[in-house]
C-alpha cells in the first residue's frame, strides 16, 4: 500500500513537472511544489511522535531518564490508588503509571472521553512516572526505534537524496537526446539538471551528516553510503570541470558522453555499493531490515508516515522541476543573448 503512495506521488510530480515541457513556465508546477512542501513540513514536524510502553522501555535503554509519549485509548486507565494508575497503551500492554494525586485525577477525568497522550519516564520495567498529559490529536506519527524525534529528518533527507539521483538521471536522458539530435536546448537542460542535482545531493549529504552526528556520534563515520555519495559528488564535480576545460564543439559532446557514464556510476554507487558492504545505513549487507521507509514490516506500514513522506517526495521533486525550469531558461537566455558558452 505505501509503495503505491510513493509511486503515485512521484508519478504526479513527474507528470506535472515535465508535462508541459521543462522549458515552459507553469504556475501549477510552482504552486503545487510550494503547497506540497508546505503540507509535508506541517504534517512532518507538527504531529507528536507517539509509541507504546514497549517502545518506551526500548528507548530508555539508549536514553535513560528521557520522557517518552505513549498513546492511551479511551478508557485505557484504571485508578489503583491516589497516586497510581493501571495504564493500557494502544497495543494493549498494561503497566503501572505513577503521578501526583492531582495528575491522577486529571488523567481519570479525561480518559473516559478522549484518547490521551501520556508523557512518561521509565522507573522500572513495569513502573512509569507520568510527567505530563495532553489530549491525543487526530494525526500522530509513529515511533521508529532508536530514532525518536530525530525520525522527522527522514521527510527531508530521503526526498533530497532521491531528487539528487533523479536529477542525474534527467541529466543522462537529456545528454542522450543531445547526442542523438544535437539540439542546444537538450545540452542546456542536462547542464542545469546536473547543477541542481549536485545541490540536492549536497543537501542530502549535509542533512545526513547532522543526523549522523546525533544518531551515530560523528558527522562522518566512514560509512559505505557516506563514501559512495561523496564519490558521486566528486564524479559530478568532474563533469563541471570537464565542461569548463574542453573548448569548442567538442565540449557538449564530451560532457554528454561523460554524463551518460556518470549516471551508470550513480546507479552503482547509490543502489549497489551500500547494499553489498557493511554499513550503518539501513539495507546494508549485515542489516536485517531495509529501513523505515522501504521496510515491509508491519510496524513500518504506518499510513500517516507513508502519506507525509509521499507528499514530501512529490513536493521536493516538483521543486526540482521548478528550479530546473528557471535555471535552464536562464542558461538558454545566457547562451543565446550573451553568447556565454554553457
Amino acid at each position: 500500500m505505501k509503495y503505491l503512495f510513493y509511486v503515485s506521488a512521484l508519478g504526479v510530480a513527474i507528470a506535472v513537472g515535465f508535462g508541459k515541457g521543462i522549458l515552459q513556465r507553469s504556475a501549477l508546477r510552482a504552486i503545487l511544489a510550494w503547497g506540497a512542501v508546505a503540507v509535508g513540513i506541517v504534517f512532518g514536524l507538527f504531529p507528536p511522535i507517539v509509541g507504546t510502553f514497549s517502545d518506551a522501555a526500548t528507548e530508555a535503554k539508549f536514553n535513560r531518564g528521557a520522557a517518552f509519549t505513549v498513546l492511551i485509548p479511551v478508557g485505557g486507565v484504571r485508578q489503583i490508588d491516589s497516586t497510581d494508575l493501571e495504564c493500557r497503551d494502544i497495543a494493549g500492554h498494561a503497566v503501572i503509571c505513577r503521578g501526583s494525586n492531582e495528575m491522577i485525577k486529571t488523567v481519570m477525568a479525561q480518559s473516559n472521553h478522549h484518547n490521551l497522550l501520556l508523557h512518561t519516564r521509565l522507573i522500572t520495567h513495569s513502573l512509569y512516572d507520568i510527567t505530563a498529559l495532553e489530549s491525543a490529536p487526530r494525526i500522530m506519527l509513529p515511533h521508529i526505534p532508536a530514532l525518536g524525534e530525530k525520525a522527522r529528518i527522514i521527510f527531508f533527507h530521503v526526498p533530497a537524496a532521491w531528487t539528487g539521483f533523479f536529477a542525474y538521471i534527467v541529466t543522462m536522458l537529456y545528454s542522450i537526446l543531445y547526442l542523438r539530435r544535437k539540439k542546444e536546448e537538450y545540452d542546456i537542460i542536462a547542464l542545469s539538471s546536473a547543477s541542481i542535482g549536485t545541490l540536492f545531493t549536497a543537501l542530502a549529504y549535509a542533512s545526513g551528516a547532522v543526523w549522523a552526528k546525533f544518531n551515530w556520534g560523528h558527522f562522518f563515520n566512514w560509512d559505505s553510503r557516506e563514501l559512495s555519495v561523496l564519490l558521486l559528488l566528486a564524479i559530478y564535480a568532474a563533469y563541471f570541470v570537464l565542461r569548463s576545460n574542453v573548448k569548442g564543439d567538442m565540449r557538449k559532446r564530451v560532457a554528454a558522453t561523460y554524463a551518460v557514464v556518470a549516471a551508470v556510476a550513480a546507479v552503482f554507487l547509490i543502489f549497489i555499493v551500500p547494499r553489498i558492504t557493511i554499513s550503518l545505513h539501513p539495507g546494508s549487507r549485515d542489516d536485517v531490515n531495509i529501513g523505515p521507509i522501504l521496510s515491509p514490516e508491519q510496524d513500518a506500514l504506518d499510513l500517516t508516515k507513508a502519506m507525509v513522506f509521499s507528499i514530501m517526495l512529490a513536493g521536493i521533486t516538483l521543486f526540482f522541476t521548478w528550479m530546473l525550469n528557471v535555471v535552464a531558461r536562464y542558461n538558454r537566455y545566457r547562451y543565446h543573448q550573451l553568447g556565454s558558452e554553457t
Partner: peptide, 12 residues
C-alpha cells in the same frame, strides 16, 4: 519541534 516547523516553513 513546532519552532523547527515554523523556521523550516519560513525558509522554504
Amino acid at each position: 519541534h513546532v519552532i523547527v516547523m515554523i523556521v523550516t516553513l519560513l525558509i522554504w
